[in-house]
């Protein structure tokens, strides 16, 4: 690639539009990526757990509702979902609500991205939670009921504590997915990390350096998320318990 002009110092140059250095663009993008991912992840965990639990209750219509929820959010691409939240929702709501969304909502790209990503991910979390609860031996529910727990107490004190421990590995994957999927928010104008990298490339034409740094940053963030979940798994591990042991 003899014609390619390598220049790692590009990050320390001032941007074409003046004022900042390019590396600040990248850091800004990184900050938005992390903020979006973390907030969306927390909401997704809460929503997804509720839906996952609902899908395992013996109340038939409630379980079906949960299944429908999951199917809806799993069968439409994330970018399409974001467009629906960002472009379609404000137009189909009643006037006052729609106008508020269009004009008065602060940081509209950020909040739309977070909500959209949260709902998308919650469906996948719900799958994991349902799977986790179904893996538990049937006798656990019986034992919980037998000591006089109500059904919600059985979920709260017996089933969910173990189910969540069991699903930490697949949840770790989902956490990493949230971080990667936050990049889709660039399509609704949010200047997260990938958007900043593209923008920087557009101005400087130093694609290699730009995209390499973006790549490294994603790898680092994903790795950190992975380690965080591993730490959590260590902390909540039940002494002596081996999965599948009876």
């Amino acid at each position: 690639m003899s014609t390619y002009n390598w220049d790692w110092n590009i990050f320390f140059e001032e941007v074409a539009t003046g004022g900042e250095k390019y590396y600040q663009w990248m850091l800004s993008g990184l900050a938005w990526t992390i903020a979006t991912a973390m907030l969306a992840w927390i909401i997704a965990l809460i929503l997804g757990s509720i839906v996952g639990v609902i899908r395992t209750t013996p109340i038939k219509w409630l379980a079906i509702l949960g299944d429908i929820y999951v199917e809806i959010f799993r069968n439409v691409p994330l970018i399409v979902q974001m467009f629906l939240w960002f472009f379609v929702l404000p137009d189909i709501l009643p006037e006052t609500a729609g106008n508020w969304l269009k004009q008065d909502l602060p940081l509209p790209e950020f909040f739309t991205a977070v909500i959209s990503l949260a709902f998308f991910t919650s469906a996948r979390v719900a799958e994991q939670v349902k799977a986790g609860v179904m893996t538990l031996p049937r006798g656990q529910k019986s034992a919980g009921l037998a000591v006089g727990f109500t059904l919600s107490q059985v979920y709260l004190y017996v089933l969910l504590p173990m189910a969540f421990r069991i699903i930490i590995p697949p949840l770790t994957s989902e956490f990493m997915n949230v971080i990667k999927n936050s990049s889709v928010a660039l399509t609704i104008g949010m200047l997260e990390l990938t958007a900043q990298a593209r923008q920087m490339n557009d101005y400087t034409f130093h694609g290699f350096e730009t995209f390499t740094v973006a790549t490294l940053l994603y790898i680092i963030v994903c790795f950190a998320a992975n380690r965080l979940m591993a730490l959590i798994e260590c902390q909540v591990r039940v002494p002596g318990y081996v999965r599948g042991d009876r």
Binding site: G139, L145, A146, Y157
Partner: peptide
């Protein structure tokens, strides 16, 4: 009130079913 009833009836299961966590 099944919950109340069950709190008065003790049950022991074939597979023990202690709460592992």
């Amino acid at each position: 009130n099944l919950s109340k009833l069950r709190s008065q009836v003790g049950m022991v299961f074939q597979h023990f079913e202690l709460f592992p966590h």
